[in-house]
């Protein structure tokens, strides 16, 4: 694996890793890591840094939903324009173009179910290119971004083995 892929694979799992430490792990020096990270940020390969949070443990109300959207693509620009109109809403967390029975997958986060319903009925479904929507509320997150939320790692090994 080249150094860029090594950096990305590590950062994807631990965005907080210290660059000096990363240099030790990848057998290179800190300045090379820093240069590569900066270059990948400006090239738009690294688009941001996130924290994985299990909001259900905080007591703060938060509702997420997946919305399947069917749209009529426009001549010349396909799905891009309608996708852009959707992703500009700050409550929209993700928008993907999909293969299969519908076109866009929209992931939305709101404070309440009401708020999400409002977005779907008052905004999304009123776009003239949107043919239909189907909203699925997320009831529980078991695993997110590769992290298992339900379980804490526990070392059950014997303390000494030869």
């Amino acid at each position: 694996m080249d150094i860029r892929n090594e950096i990305l694979a590590t950062l994807e799992r631990n965005g907080r890793i210290d660059l000096a430490e990363l240099a030790v792990l990848l057998a290179t020096d800190e300045s090379e890591i820093a240069n590569e990270v900066q270059a990948m940020e400006s090239e738009g390969i690294i688009c941001g840094y996130h924290t994985i949070i299990d909001w259900s443990k905080t007591g703060k109300e938060k509702v997420s939903a997946l919305i399947e959207v069917r749209v009529t693509p426009k001549r010349g620009i396909g799905f891009d324009e309608v996708a852009e109109r959707i992703y500009k809403y700050p409550e929209v967390a993700s928008v993907y173009l999909m293969s299969g029975g519908f076109d866009l997958m929209v992931i939305i986060e709101g404070k309440t179910m009401q708020e999400v319903a409002q977005f779907v009925t008052m905004k999304l479904s009123t776009f003239e290119t949107v043919l239909s929507t189907a909203t699925h509320f997320i009831l529980k997150k078991y695993k997110d971004h590769g992290a298992v939320l339900a379980r804490k790692y526990e070392d059950i090994r014997e303390p000494f083995t030869p």
Partner: peptide
């Protein structure tokens, strides 16, 4: 007898010991 038995007994009584004594993958 096993040369590591005695450390076993000591570590057993500690609550926040860190062991780097294991011979199997984590």
């Amino acid at each position: 007898p096993s040369g590591i038995r005695k450390y076993f007994d000591v570590v057993q009584g500690m609550d926040d010991a860190i062991s780097l004594g294991v011979g199997e993958p984590d």
